[in-house]
Design a protein around this nucleic acid. Structure first.
Lengths: 385, 385
DNA sequence: ATTTGTTTGTCTATTGGATAGACAAAGTTT
DNA sequence: AAACTTTGTCTATCCAATAGACAAACAAAT
């Protein structure tokens, strides 16, 4: 790629766009200060953005001793993205505007993971979502789909263990039914991106999102970008071995982090402990809330192992932010103390100086919003001719 | 940062520069094809590069049916970088040209790690290196120093455990003695960068370098850049726990990878096994070469644990290349089979599809060349006004 | 109400780099 | 020697950024 004036112009326009996007309202003068561009340049590029309906004029600012400036606002309803979270026992869809605000939402239970069947539900959901997109200049700008599994970079699902889907060309499937852009991502990566974009407004360039559900996966944001790895299988840290010859993991190997720190691990141990069948995370939380000592200890154990695996990530990544997300956060109050304890006692202290650990504030919306955020970002990155 | 024509020009010039750098000899027409720029543009920018003595004209190409083209060559001796590897019992310095070829080298044993003393040796080495820089347009372009420890991004050594240096403002120290650019890096990061630049000619954007010496550290290259983490302490994966309540590590915690897979671990186990004092890696290799069964088994054990830790990295990074470097590679033939075995049996097979694992071909030059490579890269990136 | 000063925003001429295409130079092939 | 091909230079043109003049819109002082 080489440079020419068109590329330069696009770049500057993008800068201005990003700045307007990042603020609620801005004046042209603020843009001039921020970007270092000259008055005329900013004026020209803003005019184009106004014509493209990506930006709106919105009242005037207070005077600072002279002419009041025209305020600009990002046109957050210029277009809408669809997001779908393919869960093991639920299907979650949203319509969001360009700021990631939910305009329409549908959450439905799923009773069969049989693929053909499930995909019919997905198509019906897409249809519903489309019908709920408001009239706007750009209408549907695309669809993001998150899948709990390993996705090749070309959108083929290599393996979604809990759905029992394998080697399914999801990209090809969607291409046959949709004529707008779409992107298929891994569930942990979607969660990570939601954390990066929605929770932290793109202000933290490097962060980790630890998705603890039935399985355990990690989404890695490095330098403002999801790190995918060579094939797209990054973040399979659930299969990091923390105990040689340890507990058997679903993957067939022994001692994986996931075998000690996931919902699956929790329920397996609880079944053994309580000699009770059909246990669920919700049921166990209920027991814990009623002060069941064994269950409380079990959560503490799971928490400790979660924290222990996190220390391994901390030593490797020296991150400034880790977000814990997905279903296990429902038990936050029962696992948080032991997670903290495990990290405090197993991490070299200086690693903690720059680190903060959060529980995702987006709760069950993390994944679906992240899936949509990929699409929003792509739209905002290059809607230019 | 905004774009203007100057920035654009610089960018194009850089593109041309990088292309000439990456090839041995190139014609202007090849550059035109590669970059998509027009004849006149390429001609102008190449003229500037010639004037700056970064590029040389070097004979003519074969004719392809018309006028023969003037060939261009990167001026690899336009300037020279110094590189220093601060070892625990050695001090290694090189003068390299802009292609990273060693022009002068000095390797000396170090008998005391007492800091003031050691630093006098470093200054003397710098002096010697400077005196061995050939006369050239740019002369000394800078100094890269690699330290076996955790380095803050500002060049302060937080902790170099095997040197017993702590909280030492190395940046400030060098600044008082040197008036050209310098960069202080962690030893594993330097090794990783050498692998990326020298061994793989910047063609592999993401790779891991596992430095196995007395300790164990990992250098991480992501998207053509060393990943430093929030503070600069990335790659402390030697302290990833692979066995809860396992072997005691020097860091005081239990079950660290380093306690199973480093030279320190090797010697500790060997001492226990052979009841012999003052063992060295070299002595053990010697025993292994003479077929000492227990020692062979010991190397196999170490190898297995090296491989096991590597699977953890593979699951997290899904890398396309891992380079094993530093002193332990001296025992390559005794550890390689069990490393491979550990990886094969503990990694999900699809992760291996895109992965290749090498032993550093640079041997004991890895670190010092990597240290210098940082400087070369910075010089090549922006020698423009 | 008028004047002065300040900030915002537009308009115009200039600058500097990329570009198209003419042209010359240096080859090969017929 | 003529025709063709490729390389490299030169010139006029294009276009986005820019400097700076100018007008518009406002506040505060007179």
């Amino acid at each position: 790629m080489s440079w020419n004036q068109q590329v330069g112009k696009k770049f500057n326009k993008q800068q201005i766009m990003n700045y307007i996007f990042s603020k609620d309202v801005v004046s042209r003068s603020e843009i001039i200060e921020e970007t270092g561009l000259k008055k005329a340049t900013v004026a020209n590029l803003v005019t184009e953005l106004l014509e493209e309906q990506l930006v709106l004029e919105d009242g005037k600012d207070q005077s600072t001793g002279g002419r009041r400036s025209q305020l600009l606002r990002f046109h957050q309803n210029a277009g809408f993205a669809l997001g779908i979270d393919i869960g093991v026992n639920y299907l979650h869809g949203v319509v969001v505007n360009l700021k990631g605000e939910i305009i329409f939402e549908q959450l439905q239970p799923i009773y069969t993971i049989q693929r053909e069947n499930y995909l019919q539900n997905v198509l019906a959901l897409i249809d519903t979502l489309q019908k709920n997109v408001p009239i706007s200049p750009y209408a549907v700008i695309g669809l993001g789909v998150a899948v709990p599994g390993s996705i090749y970079q070309d959108g083929t699902i290599m393996n979604a263990p809990n759905l029992h889907w394998e080697n399914f060309d999801f990209h090809h499937f969607l291409q046959q039914h949709i004529d707008y852009p779409f992107y298929i991502s891994n569930e942990a990566n979607a969660g990570a991106y939601a954390g990066y974009v929605v929770e932290h407004h793109k202000e933290i360039p490097n962060l980790l999102y630890v998705s603890i559900g039935v399985g355990l996966g990690v989404g890695i944001v490095i330098d403002h970008t999801i790190y995918l790895g060579a094939q797209g299988f990054s973040g399979e840290s659930g299969h990091m071995i923390i105990q040689m010859n340890g507990r058997l993991c679903k993957c067939g190997r022994k001692g994986c982090w996931e075998a000690y720190a996931s919902e699956y691990a929790l329920i397996r141990e609880a079944t053994y402990l309580l000699k009770e069948h059909d246990l669920s995370l919700e049921r166990l939380i209920n027991l814990a809330e009623n002060g069941h000592a064994d269950v409380l200890q079990l959560f503490a154990d799971i928490g400790y192992h979660i924290g222990l695996g996190m220390t391994n990530l901390i030593h490797t990544f020296n991150p400034e932010k880790i977000i814990i997300g997905n279903r296990m956060t429902l038990a936050q109050k029962f696992i948080a103390p032991s997670i903290e304890e495990a990290i405090r006692s197993n991490t070299m202290p200086f690693h903690l100086d720059a680190l903060s650990i959060d529980y995702s504030s987006l709760k069950e919306h993390s994944i679906v919003l992240g899936a949509a955020a990929f699409i929003i970002d792509r739209f905002i990155q290059l809607p230019f001719e």
